[in-house]
Amino acid sequence: MSHPNPLETVRVEGMSRQTLLLRGTLAAGAVFGTSMVSPFLRRAFAQGDMGDVDILNFALTLEYLETAFYEEGAKLGLKGEVASQAKRFGAEEAEHVDALTATIKDLGGTPAKMPMFEFGVTDEKSFLELAQTLEDTGVGAYNGAGPAIKSKEVLAAAGSIVQIEARHAAAIRLLREQDPAPDQFEPPLTTEQVNKAVAPLIVS
């Protein structure tokens, strides 16, 4: 990592951030295999220079996207299980939007504005395909940002949301007859990877 680490002077209970990083490298090596430590740490800490409000706004934008997506889906005339799941999941994403907005304000921040989206879904098939991508991406986004969250309360809240995203992802995958849990360890995504994945859907 070539960029300066603004956290290196932060002390956690008498320990420098670098001590934490060093100690954690061993743990990450144990979990993901030594050869994977470097890319893993790069990913897990790519969000290291974002504050909690920035991370919450990043999450808020994703939740706006998901909410708008399910609203779009409601116009497609979906039927049966797909329709009922989409309705439920859309309502849950809308609750995430409200909760994140309130939390950002509570922390003294300004909630990000909702962008304009264009999903290009036309039928059940294209809807479910994009739903799977969005929900899987949502899980990776929260997991990638998690370790960079400084407040325990915000972290716990993000945890309670990411679990729902994971549940949505699994259920959507089952509707498509796909493996509900394709990874034994969910791969985290950087903000960069997430932004790249959703960029084609953002009009302005």
């Binding site: 934490l20 954690g24 743990a27 997991n143 370790p147 360890f185 969910e186």
Partner: peptide, 14 residues
């Protein structure tokens, strides 16, 4: 530890 947390999150969503 941030790294233990990252690992726990990776398991949690699974």
């Amino acid at each position: 530890s941030d790294e233990v947390l990252a690992a726990a999150l990776a398991i949690h969503s699974v």
